[in-house]
Design a protein around this nucleic acid. Structure first.
Length: 263
DNA sequence: GCCATTTGACCTAG
DNA sequence: CTAGGTCAAATGGC
């Protein structure tokens, strides 16, 4: 049975923590305390298991080191109708560009692709969660030290609030003005934090700044500003972005609004 | 009443 | 034997 792991960065402000919507509907069937882990592991199976015999399952566990990161281990592929639906909902070049680096297995029908394919709903989840390739995690944390949180839970009931506050403060203090565009001054900086560290997430960064810059950024990765976030260009795999990559087309963004705006 | 979640019990691989 | 994974009754929300 195919098995692979994602790391999902959560945005506690959105309240989506816990749902971890990946486009599929899951039913929780168990939870276990894992030896040596601070947080219990949740066990989920596809809601359509009984009706359609879909054997996909996933395990969800919050990371010890960074409680804002959820490790999601998928097992088995979806055979239910929602998998078909999700496969049709997004341009195929997205799948090609983003899928191949995300997983340890060579399975072709992988949730991250399906998640991204799911629009517009998938886009919103895509903006509030942070999925990273496991192998890149350390590199990202080196570049974004403010993404690493001290282990401060000590049983506090207000852990999430505390984390959110810390996260937000780190961001408002750490981002340069060049990164936070004046044009998006009403946007909550924390929303920028939810726009991400890998290639997929950098797209969101660019969405928040200037759509017209997107093409330039992707087509001329050596032309960067002094914004530290753009150093992430080194993490981009040029092959991930085909010339017709949808995010290069400003029209792609006209179909939805960015949800992370302050009230 | 239906469905999802919770949680202690049970199963099983190592 | 132990830890991880699953089952299923109890519980709660709608």
């Amino acid at each position: 049975m195919p098995r692979w792991t994602e790391q999902v960065k959560i945005c506690s402000r959105t309240g989506l923590e816990g749902s971890l919507d990946d486009g599929y509907s899951w039913r929780k069937y168990g939870q276990k305390d894992i030896l040596g882990a601070k947080f219990p592991r949740g066990y989920y199976r596809c809601t359509h298991r009984n009706v359609q015999g879909c054997l996909a399952t996933k395990q969800v566990q919050r990371s010890d080191e960074d409680p804002t990161t959820i490790e999601v281990t998928y097992r088995g592929r979806h055979t239910c109708t929602q998998a078909k639906y999700l496969n049709k909902a997004f341009p195929s070049n997205i799948k090609k560009g983003l899928g191949e680096n995300q997983f340890h297995s060579d399975e072709t029908n992988q949730p991250i692709k399906e998640k991204i394919q799911e629009t517009p709903v998938g886009i919103f989840a895509f903006e509030t969660e942070h999925r990273v390739k496991t192998e890149e995690l350390e590199i990202k944390e080196d570049i974004f030290p403010w993404f690493s949180f001290p282990s401060q839970s000590n049983g506090s009931e207000n852990e999430d609030v505390l984390l959110e506050s810390t996260f937000e403060n780190h961001f408002t203090e750490s981002f340069s003005p060049a990164f936070i565009s004046p044009a998006t001054s009403e946007s909550n900086p924390f929303c920028l934090s939810a726009c991400y560290l890998n290639s997929t997430e950098l797209l969101c960064q660019q969405i928040q700044t200037s759509e017209s810059d997107i093409t330039e950024t992707f087509s001329a990765p050596t032309s960067v500003t002094n914004s530290p976030i753009l150093d992430l260009d080194i993490l981009l795999h040029k092959g991930d972005f085909d010339t017709d990559f949808p995010f290069n087309n400003p029209d792609f963004f006209s179909s939805f609004e960015l949800p992370c705006t302050s009230t």
